Amino acid sequence: MIQNSKSDKINILCIGSVLWDIIGRSRMEMQRGSDMPGRITRLPGGVAMNIAMTLARFGLKPALLSAIGRDEEGNELVNACLRLGLLTDHIYRSEDLPTDRYMAVEGANGLIAAIADAHSLEAAGDKILRPLRDGSLGSSRHPYSGLVALDGNLTLSLLDDIAAAPEFSAADLRVAPASPGKAERLRPFLNRNRGTLYVNLEEAGLMCQAEFSDSLTAAQAMLDRGASRVLVTDGGSSATEAGPDAPITLSPPRVTVARVTGAGDTFMAAHIAAEARGEPREIALASALKAAATYVSGEPPL
């Protein structure tokens, strides 16, 4: 049960990675071993953070549940969250764990390589969920009943606990893997028929241990495996939303790609915001595809 006045403003919880993105981008095509001129930026990032930032731009009030160190980088990151209108009251601040980081290199031909250092989030474990258990945001007797955006940077054991925990039994769970390498961590939500899963074609294949040629086939396979509801994207080709009702497949707008890191998070956040506005399924999917296309073109998704 919500107990403090600050929590009354929250209309979605974003649970998972909040870190610094260090991104190197070149306008030239790159291959393994390439050494090209470009720009290197440091921006607030992480799946939960990217989703929260986009939700805030769409007028929602997200609260972050994550782990951030009490080091200088952590203090800077919290201040950046506040400037973006995100609620940070419930973030677990560790005295001995450093603030996490993500590093990627992108060329004109897309993502070349990336390393996600989310070890502090993994080490913090279920400490980040205390507000959902101690009455600050909810408890097992009075579970939080709003929207929850959850990312796969948490450990498999913690995600398994969340899929079955009474504290999440009333929540509208929206779940995404942090990367293809962590897609299989979402299996508990397949096994328990819980939540709405947002994955790309590669991630769907890893979860189903199969290869798919299109988003519709992948979405149907995930439902057959036990998913309650899924949204599967396939880059510039198509995206499918599927669940209890007939699936919907749409093609995204064609744009020139200027960046890729964060595109999936933008799609997920835009879809959540569209449904929160009451848009019907097909319009919500179209809104999310438009926002993601605008983002990869280099413009803000609004």
Rank of each mutant, 00 (worst) to 15 (best):
R39P: 00
R32D: 07
P98G: 11
P37I: 00
A104C: 10
L82H: 15
I128A: 02
I40Q: 02
G69R: 03
G107T: 07
M30K: 07
P37G: 08
A80D: 01
V47F: 00
M53D: 04
M53V: 11
S66G: 04
N50D: 02
R83P: 08
M49R: 03
R57D: 11
G59F: 09
Q31L: 14
C81A: 10
H90G: 07
D89A: 15
L86R: 10
T88S: 05
T99V: 11
Y102A: 13
N50A: 02
L87V: 14
R83T: 13
D96A: 12
D100N: 13
S94F: 03
T99E: 05
D100M: 04
G46C: 07
Q31T: 14
A48D: 04
E72P: 07
A116C: 11
V105Q: 10
H90Y: 15
H119K: 13
N75D: 14
R93S: 06
S66F: 08
I68L: 11
R93W: 02
L65H: 06
L55I: 05
D71H: 12
M36Q: 13
P98A: 15
H119Y: 13
G33L: 06
G59V: 05
L86W: 03
E95C: 11
G85F: 07
L64Y: 03
L77R: 08
E122V: 14
L87D: 15
A80Q: 01
L87Q: 13
A116E: 05
Y92I: 07
M53L: 14
A113I: 13
Y102N: 11
K127W: 07
L111P: 01
M30L: 15
D126N: 15
G46I: 02
D117Y: 12
A63T: 04
I51E: 02
A114P: 00
L55G: 01
L111M: 06
G107L: 03
R32V: 14
A108M: 02
L77M: 04
I112K: 05
M30S: 12
E122N: 10
A67G: 09
D89Q: 15
E95Y: 09
R93G: 04
E73M: 14
I68F: 09
H119L: 12
A67F: 06
L43N: 09
R70M: 15
H90C: 13
Q31S: 14
N109F: 07
D117A: 12
A116L: 03
L84C: 09
D117L: 13
R70W: 09
T88H: 05
A56I: 04
F58N: 02
A104D: 05
A123L: 10
L60G: 00
L86K: 11
R42M: 04
Y92R: 01
A113R: 12
S120E: 12
D71W: 10
I115G: 00
L43T: 09
Y102H: 15
D100E: 08
N75W: 08
D117Q: 12
A124K: 10
G85V: 09
G69M: 04
V105I: 15
D89F: 14
A118Q: 09
E122F: 10
G59A: 08
L86N: 10
A63H: 02
K127P: 00
L60Q: 08
L64D: 00
A63R: 00
A124M: 07
D71R: 12
F58D: 04
